Amino acid sequence: MSVQYKKNRHAAYLLHAHIVFVTKYRRKIFAPAHHDAFREAARQVCAEFGVEIEECNGESDHVHLLVNYPPSIQLTRLINSLKAVSSRRMRRQFADLVAAYSKPVLWSRAYFVSSCGGAPLSVIKEYIENQQG
């Protein structure tokens, strides 16, 4: 398998991050339609940042993303945008998400992010693909 490095004016790179968002209070509120809406919101946010989503899936209380990003991106800014935009859009689209919380929230304040240099990407992709969603 040959590695396809990305290039811009000043760098050649291949950066991947595994990101996990958990619902507030770990409530099991996501159905397949919610995951589809999250994927669409994440796709739009990532496109604005110049980030590629390689995999996106999850279960009833969390979502996983595997992204390929340029070195100019600050992951914290990307993550904050992903959480804010997806929360706002999904709560606007689904009344059941609004009813699940007394305040306008969806995600826990915490998140998980890991660079993917240690494990083969195929292992991480397979893990995310096997999430229920």
Rank of each mutant, 00 (worst) to 15 (best):
L65K: 01
D36G: 11
R77D: 15
V67F: 01
W107L: 03
I73Y: 00
S115Y: 06
D36V: 08
H35T: 06
A37D: 05
P104T: 05
P104L: 05
F38S: 01
G50D: 08
L75A: 09
V45D: 03
S108V: 00
T76I: 11
V85Q: 09
A100H: 11
N80T: 12
D96N: 12
A95D: 14
P120R: 12
R39D: 09
E52T: 13
R91K: 08
L78G: 04
A95E: 14
R92M: 11
C116F: 06
D96A: 14
V105G: 01
Y101W: 10
M90V: 08
S87G: 05
A100G: 05
E48N: 12
Y111E: 11
C56L: 13
H34D: 07
E59G: 07
S122L: 10
G118S: 10
L106N: 02
A100S: 13
A95C: 09
D36N: 13
A100R: 10
G117T: 06
I53N: 01
H35S: 02
P120S: 10
Y101T: 01
P120N: 14
N80G: 10
A84C: 08
D96S: 15
V67P: 00
E55W: 04
H35K: 06
I53H: 00
H34S: 04
V85E: 08
A84S: 15
S115K: 05
G118A: 15
V51D: 01
H34Y: 04
N80R: 15
R92K: 15
S108G: 05
Y69F: 13
C56N: 04
P71Q: 07
H62P: 02
H35C: 07
D61F: 05
S102Q: 13
Y111P: 02
H62N: 04
E40H: 12
V113A: 14
E54H: 03
G117A: 08
Q74T: 11
C56E: 01
R91H: 06
R43K: 14
L66I: 02
I79L: 11
D96P: 02
A84E: 13
C116D: 03
D96W: 11
Q93F: 00
R43A: 15
N68P: 06
L121S: 02
R91G: 03
N57V: 09
Y111H: 13
V123F: 08
R109A: 11
S102A: 12
F94I: 04
H34V: 04
K103W: 03
E55R: 10
E52M: 04
S87H: 05
S86Q: 02
N68M: 09
